[in-house]
Design a protein around this nucleic acid. Structure first.
Lengths: 333, 333
DNA sequence: AAATCGTGGTAAATCGCTTTACCAATCTTT
DNA sequence: AAAGATTGGTAAAGCGATTTACCACGATTT
């Protein structure tokens, strides 16, 4: 591969000059002839600058790491799309990590995070162990943006409008006439779980009985088993608010397995929309969150000066209610 | 951040020695005391090697680029998972690119591909223009593995068992008694499209009428509109083989919109399984392809010596038939 | 006593690019 | 004609890690 030095040699000038011409150094005075010759030789040699050398020199890699704990979850996919789009705009590359896919801590990605290979880290951490090596690697070495939940890494925390979204979902069921409304929450202790539970409680008021709440990680199988237990424990539940759309699909499976019709016997509303949510057996009523925007904001935030990163950002865009067919007036009373 | 030189200084030795100790240079003779002291200082300073400097020196980045043309398609997600897992095993990082998300060619990713920033490129190219800059960037600069379709980049081409899969899907419908079987293919000219069409033809024999074939890019909306036209043109079709599961969902929408019941009036079988395919309005019968394995093989291939990359690999694992409820004996004749 | 050997290291070049400081000509000004 | 300004460049020092070649010194051998 062609290098600056090689171009310099062929053009009969110094490599410093080549560099300054190619990078359009404004302070440089150079004759038209020399400049054009340099550019011609560079073109002939099909020159492309060595990004590694540039990075070493400039101490920045124009790369940011995006780590999620389950890349297969469509919710994270949507966030990633937003992050990707913004990265494109800012001319950054995205290094992808899946913390569920094994020991991220020992991986090449961790080496890069700890070793000046990335300029920032966006972390969707639900499920990541706090003692994970990647976290140590990141600790104070690189600007960090945490999505949705704070695991104490410092850096910024970006949140969705969790409380309004859960309120919106719950209110919808109440307006339909439901009174005993279950809450299929995400894992306990996560920042967004707490926010959404707050929203559910806000709407439920005195009816917010803790026995109506169950926690499930965002997998269909777990959503199903947890919902099953919840419905067996509280057979009086007629409506269910799910904090994750994948878990909601599990909830539908569980309801069906128990012989319940959705929405006749059980209304289900979920937070987060998903592609094909409208093609499901029972098209799912959801509260859509501004996921792509969250991704965009995450990239934007991690790219600004580390010293100026705000401690906490809540995405301003309001959640959007999408009525489909998994909710209806309660059929059994 | 700590550097070798800093450790060397504090330990009172040369940085060469520090490097050799830390990297366990076998040819090095060093006293126990010195070695232990160096390691102690390195640990105290929380040393992590600068990956950029290492890359510059060694001319390898331990990073591979994975470019798909629509990261939102679950099919590609599955391939990515496999690629990711294998990358993890080999201690490589994955740089993600979405060629549909804009002009990849001008992006940072392209700079990295063209400028020694990645050790290899895995390209899922359906839809990428051949004149895209990323392709120029990659041209002869980096080992390339093309997935599923050959766009003439050189390098290796990895294929799925396309012919058997399409045969399997078509045969299933024929065994149910269908005779007029449509073919909702993917875009014309792509290597895997040709393979699957071959499979369909093999099973259809003399009944393989070209007017039974329609082409759609792998998006639900396009699958729907193309299917609509196909069904209007050939209302005698009772079974449909789809080459992509996302297009198949579109096909179901189109059938419903035309007042057709699936599978009563139209049986649909698709190539590629998908999460939640069983939760759809009509659970989709599919032929599952070894997608994750393809991803793994792609990573493996791109990591071996460029000179040894085989021109063509077909994944050996047989496709797997998954019976669900979108296919049945023909109801109308 | 001279030659040899093993021990425990070090100096310096290199990867490719950027950037600061500096400089030799040539041209203008007074 | 001497001083100053402008034009058109260059030399060299890094960025941080690796690696080859080499070396000083004490111990052993001849």
């Amino acid at each position: 591969m062609a290098t600056l030095a090689e171009i310099a040699h062929r053009a009969g000038v110094s490599s410093a000059l080549v560099s300054r011409v190619i990078n359009n150094d404004g302070t440089l005075r150079v004759s038209r002839k020399t400049r054009e010759n340099i550019l011609k030789v560079a073109h002939e040699l099909n020159y492309a600058p060595n990004v590694v050398a540039k990075s070493l020199r400039s101490s920045k890699s124009d790369t940011i790491a995006f780590v999620v704990h389950d890349a297969a979850n469509p919710v994270y996919g949507e966030i990633l799309r937003g992050a990707q789009a913004e990265a494109e705009r800012r001319n950054k590359a995205i290094l992808l990590g899946d913390s569920a896919a094994g020991n991220v801590g020992n991986s090449r990605l961790a080496q890069m995070i700890g070793g000046c290979g990335v300029d920032g880290l966006i972390l969707q951490a639900a499920g990541i162990q706090a003692d994970n090596l990647i976290i140590k690697a990141a600790h104070q070495k690189v600007p960090v943006v945490q999505l949705q939940t704070d695991i104490g890494l410092g850096g910024s925390l970006i949140q969705l409008p969790d409380i309004p979204a859960a309120e919106m979902a719950t209110r919808h069921l109440r307006e339909l006439g439901h009174r005993t409304i279950g809450c299929l929450a995400t894992s306990e202790g996560l920042t967004f779980t707490e926010g959404r539970m707050q929203g559910w409680r806000n709407e439920m008021g005195a009816a917010a009985d803790p026995s109506l709440v169950a926690h499930a990680a965002p997998f269909a199988a777990e959503g199903a088993s947890v919902t099953r237990e919840l419905l067996l424990r509280r057979p009086d539940i007629t409506g269910l608010v799910c904090f994750n759309v994948v878990a909601a699909i599990g909830a539908m499976r569980a309801a069906n397995a128990l012989g319940l019709d959705v929405p006749q016997d059980l209304s289900i509303v979920s937070i987060h929309d998903m592609k094909f949510a409208g093609d499901l057996k029972v098209p799912l009523t959801v509260v859509r969150m501004p996921l792509a925007e969250m991704g965009r904001v995450a990239t934007k935030t991690v790219c600004i000066e580390a010293s100026e990163i705000p401690a906490r950002i809540t995405i301003g865009t309001a959640p959007e209610f999408v009525q489909r067919q998994s909710t209806a007036v309660p059929g059994r009373v």
